[in-house]
Structures are given as structure tokens and as C-alpha cells.
Design a protein around this nucleic acid. Sequence first.
DNA 1: TACAATTATATTGTATACAACATATTTCCA
DNA 2: TGGAAATATGTTGTATACAATATAATTGTA
Lengths: 152, 152
Amino acid sequence: MDYDYKEAMKLSNQVCFPLYAASRNVIGLYTPHLKKLGLTYTQYIAFLVLWEKDGITVGEICDKLMLDNGTLSPLLKKMEAAGYITRTRSEDDDRVVLITLTKEGRALQKKARDIPEKVASCCSLSPEKTKMLYDLLYELIGNQNSSKGETK
Amino acid sequence: MDYDYKEAMKLSNQVCFPLYAASRNVIGLYTPHLKKLGLTYTQYIAFLVLWEKDGITVGEICDKLMLDNGTLSPLLKKMEAAGYITRTRSEDDDRVVLITLTKEGRALQKKARDIPEKVASCCSLSPEKTKMLYDLLYELIGNQNSSKGETK
DNA sequence: TACAATTATATTGTATACAACATATTTCCA
DNA sequence: TGGAAATATGTTGTATACAATATAATTGTA
């Protein structure tokens, strides 16, 4: 029994497709709620990181969000321009830029606190299935990272 | 026991994050292989659709890929400029544009046929787990579509 | 059968993503 | 200790995404 190239190449047989579609779809669920706060999705997840741990470096945010610095660097500048964060050079290491929330940036957290609940109610996967999905996704991410040889 | 807003808002508790990260990560696995063929990921999934069913409309491709026409319209123009497809107005309905593969577009399929296998070997989720993930993602996509009231 | 909705596609504007390259510092050693 | 290598961030170029709007054609109907 040979490997069936034709079958493997069908859109419906490549996990990349539902993964990509589901990702854009879920982000789309956040968008209307975020728009009310004047936030984009990427800004929102950057805030999630900062609300959990303030005063971290640009690089730490990149790592936590698994996003390129070429993506976050301009984003953080915008967030600074909007008055939500400050960017200061570290005293220890002049290459490092520390991101700190302003009062406005912290205040935004309260306004955003009901968003996860609202989105969860739209996305009717059972708690068990959500947990399963969650674990599978993290396994997928973990495997790929290690396949890139980044053991740190 | 009240709803724990603070806990729900943690990055690690929102499925959107690993979903988005895994999606970008998997696309990243395709990229180097696609680059050899001069293709981007979005062009690739558009080809997957066309290799399965040729001569379809722009709208059908949008539906199958769950992508906006504002995304696909320019993409298809590029693919036409590259000589892989032709865009012709339907005779029945002058609003409709039919996308047809050229000889070059069909020939590309052979060059791309080993990509799914190569990517699968990088992404070391067991076949059972891949199937589970696949089903969960389709359930997620399905639920969201129906929540938008698009039963068609 | 005019003409108001609907439909299919295209265009514009804004915001990511990432690769590749650039710059400024800091570390590491020979 | 004088660079070479590594590190942290910034910038540029290319390619999406999608909302909002525009345009042209078709349909439904009063």
C-alpha cells in the first residue's frame, strides 16, 4: 500500500487548514468586544502579558506571545503613543527596553475583564473538549519549538 | 464561588492564544518548503482548493478557505500575473469570475505533492491526537459559523 | 417593467506577521 | 584588553487579513 499523495494533499486532510481557520475565527469573536475599547487583538494579548507581569522587556513579551520582534516593536510604540505604556532603557543593559504600564494601561484591565467570559459563551465547545484542545495545542507548539532546537 | 475574572484573563487560560500560536507555528513549517516553489502559504491553500476542483468562482474559493474576498481578490490577481491561473467572467452571470488553472498551475501540483508528508514529520503529534485535534477544530469552526446565523 | 434589494467582485485603509538587514551594546576570550 | 561573536531592539520590504466602501450586474416585485 503506497503513500497516497493525492489524498494527503486534499485541503480537508491537512490540519493546518482548520487550525488556521479556527484561529482567525476565534480572533474574530474577540474583535467586536475589543473594538469597544479601541484595542486590536494583538494589542490585547500584549496587555494580557503586561497585566500579569509589568516592567518586563520587549524580548520577554516576544517570547511569551511567540511573536517576532518585528511585529511587537512597532506595536509597542503605538501603545506608548496611545499612553498605555512607557518604554525605558534598562539601567543595567542599555540594549534592553523595559515596558511599563501607565495608570491608563492598568485601568484598561477592568474594562476588559468580562471579555473572556463573553467570548467563551460564543464558542460552544464543552469545558472538557476545550481542555483537550488546549492540551493538544500546547503539545503541538512544544513539539515544534523543540524541533527547531531551541532548548535554551 | 464567584466567577474568577482575574484567573480567566490570564494568557495561559485563554484558548485563543495557543490556537493562534500553533497556527502561526504550523504555517511556519510549510513556509520553507513552499518558498522553494515560490509560493506563500495562502497561495498554497488556494492551490489546494483549485487542484481539487478547477474552474470555480472567486466566491467558492472564499467559502472553502473561509477567507475574505478582500484577501483573495488581490491574491488571485497575483496568481494570474504569475501565470498559474486565468480569470474569466462567467457567461451566465457577468458578476462572477471563474478561476481556471493553466498548464503551469496544474504542473505545480506534482512539485508540491510531498509537502504534506514533510510537514507531518516535523509536527510530532501522534495520528490519534492529530485526529482528535482535527475534530475539535472543525467543531469549533462549525459552532462559530452557526452562531453567526449562517445556515445557508 | 422601472427600480429597490441583493449579489459578486474589487478597492482602500489599517494592522499585523515575519524574514532580512541594521545598529548599538555587551560578553567572551585569545 | 582589543576585537569577534552574541544579544536586544529597530527598520524595511513583502504578503496577508478584514472592515468598509464602491461598482457593476442580476433578481424580485409592486
